[in-house]
Nucleic acid binder design. Structure first.
Length: 349
DNA sequence: TACTCGTGGCC
DNA sequence: TGGCCAAGAGT
């Protein structure tokens, strides 16, 4: 018999669960672990709205974990372009290959899942509970918010995480732990929202300590965050015979493994050098303002008007057809810069 | 532990 | 309109 709180939440979930592409239809058999895993990785720090089209495209191109495991890395990275946190894509493929090597069967325990690339404490618990019916304590940002309100946790995040986990453990039922986790996340996404929580619609309002304070939106308490530095950098548009010079970024670091315009080495730690990859005349092509999580970047685009191609070797990059630039899989920053270049070179209005 | 790592939507 | 926020993981 579940505790009253879990029971009330599951009743609410049975009536109000969101319909999402990676969820099994109500009353049907257990969901496909591949789809659960894929969706959970895509949803890490990413909104449902942003994930939907990527999930549809990935499952269309790679319907099984074995199919994904056989995909070339470049195709997977390009398919992930725009979704952000690109280490996820590398780990996704690495994980798929591990699972494929064991017959395409995911481990069905939390510990087994936790050992896979890209599965941390949250994702391992979520897949164990949702795909395999295991009791696991699933704690994401929604659960942190809901729990910190239910118990009016006064200590600020992230220091309060151990206490929040203990509270979450205490209210997680033995049965339907996967539904319970998804119910907590749906509640956090639709009712117990960061601002202006809709307590009048909440199935747990009678048990909520934060509501009793009259200011539930004050929870979770959070530590002050560091100011974001502002950086300047350059990206370079070098076009020749309808093709543009693209490089592949190193696997480690920002936008790792992604195709990109050459740049001058800007980073979170400092401005770029200003140095161009080839000598000759350059013309300003405009500026892209882009906000990363931990710094802001003003990226000046420079367009090449010279004809000295000697410094561009095939081991450093590739000529990519300008009319197919959308298929290059550029991360959003460079996609914006490419759009600017197309405007200022008159290729596109 | 604290830092790094994207992006788009929201008010 | 700019800071806040999102189904976190890796180091």
């Amino acid at each position: 018999m579940p505790a009253p709180l879990a029971s009330a939440l599951l009743d609410w979930y049975d009536a109000h669960a969101r319909t999402l592409p990676w969820r099994a239809a109500p009353g049907t058999s257990a969901p496909d672990p591949y789809r659960v895993w894929l969706s959970e990785v895509m949803l890490q720090q990413t909104t449902v709205a942003a994930v939907k089209s990527y999930f549809a495209e990935f499952t269309r191109r790679w319907p099984t974990v074995t199919a994904l495991a056989e995909a070339p890395e470049g195709e997977v990275m390009a398919a992930w372009a725009g979704l952000g946190y690109y280490a996820r894509a590398r780990n996704l493929l690495a994980c798929a290959r591990v699972v494929a090597a064991r017959g395409g069967v995911f481990p069905d325990t939390e510990d087994g899942l936790r050992a896979l690339p890209g599965l941390g404490a949250y994702t391992a618990a979520a897949v164990a509970a949702i795909a395999f019916g295991r009791r696991a304590v699933v704690v994401d940002a929604n659960v942190e918010r809901v729990v910190s309100r239910l118990f009016a946790v006064a200590e600020p995040l992230p220091g309060s995480r151990p206490a929040i986990r203990r509270h979450a453990d205490a209210i997680t039922p033995e049965l339907r732990a996967g539904d319970f986790a998804q119910a907590m996340m749906d509640l956090g996404a639709t009712i117990c929202t960061p601002r202006s929580p809709r307590c009048l619609l909440c199935p747990l309002s009678a048990s909520c300590a934060a509501r009793k304070t009259g200011e539930p939106e004050r929870f979770p308490v959070k530590a002050a965050k560091k100011p974001k530095p502002q950086r300047n950098g350059r990206a370079f548009w070098i076009a020749r015979n309808g093709a543009v010079w693209l490089v592949r970024r190193p696997d480690k670091g920002m936008l790792g493994g992604m195709r990109a315009l050459p740049d001058d080495g800007w980073s979170a730690k400092g401005d770029g050098s200003g140095e161009a990859p080839v000598s000759g005349s350059w013309e300003p092509g405009g500026t892209v303002a882009h906000g990363f999580t931990h710094f802001g970047l003003d990226l000046d685009l420079l367009i090449y008007r010279g004809n000295d191609w000697a410094g561009l070797g095939a081991e450093q990059g590739e000529w990519w057809p300008v009319e197919r630039i959308d298929e290059a899989g550029l991360p959003t920053l460079f996609a914006k810069a490419a759009r600017l270049a197309l405007v200022s070179t008159g290729v596109e209005a």
